[in-house]
Simulated assay, not measured.
Amino acid sequence: MDNEQMILFWIVAIVLFSIIEGITLGLATIWFAAGAFIAVLAAILNFSIPVQIGLFIVVSLALLAFTRPIVVKHLRVGRHKTNLDVIIDSMGIVTKDIEPFKVGQVKVNGQIWTATTEDKNTITKDTKVKVIRIEGVKLIVKTLEEE
């Protein structure tokens, strides 16, 4: 293959990787499209085919390894935040005693929730609590430590 054919090859690779990324939205093949872009520049500058392939591999893998985690973190790909997430770490007031192996009630942000504790201790009415997590439709809470 000569460099003109390699230019065409790399352009086709860019288009294919971009189409696959557009279909899957997994942030996996876009890095290979970037690697193919660098390889097409190398082909235009008349670098040898092994150098073009080497640049494609090195750039693609480097981008995949170093930039994908950052982009995924900022775009939060695959994670859907819900309104329930704002309740976690919120403070509430016990409105019905929480007893071992029984649910009580807690008022958080103006809403009444069923609640229990991790350690199965009794928490009495009017005690301030903090929401640790949500399991189904039940809050898991702990008492706020007095300072």
Rank of each mutant, 00 (worst) to 15 (best):
P50I: 12
V72K: 15
T29D: 03
F47V: 02
A65Y: 13
F47N: 13
N3C: 02
E135W: 12
E145F: 04
G104L: 04
M1L: 10
I88P: 04
H74E: 06
D126H: 13
K125Q: 14
R68A: 01
I14S: 02
Q5I: 02
R133E: 12
G35Q: 07
I88S: 07
T117W: 09
K142H: 07
A28R: 08
D126I: 00
T127Y: 10
G110T: 04
L84A: 13
A36T: 05
K142Y: 01
N121R: 13
K138M: 08
Q52A: 00
W113V: 06
A34E: 04
E135P: 03
I19S: 07
I53C: 07
L8A: 09
G92Q: 09
K120Q: 10
L61Y: 06
D85A: 13
N109G: 00
I98M: 08
A42V: 01
A115T: 08
L75I: 09
I140P: 02
G54E: 01
T29L: 08
Q111T: 11
P50H: 11
L64M: 12
L8T: 12
N3P: 00
L75G: 06
A13L: 09
N121H: 09
G104Q: 12
F47Y: 15
G35P: 05
A33D: 09
G78Q: 12
E146Q: 10
G22P: 03
R133Q: 10
F101W: 14
E135G: 04
W113F: 11
K125F: 05
E145G: 04
H80A: 08
V131W: 08
A39R: 11
T95P: 03
F37I: 07
M6F: 08
K128V: 05
G54C: 01
I70C: 00
D126S: 10
L8P: 01
T122F: 06
I38K: 06
M6W: 15
H80R: 15
I98K: 09
T122A: 04
T122Y: 03
I20K: 13
L45W: 15
T29V: 00
A39T: 08
V131C: 05
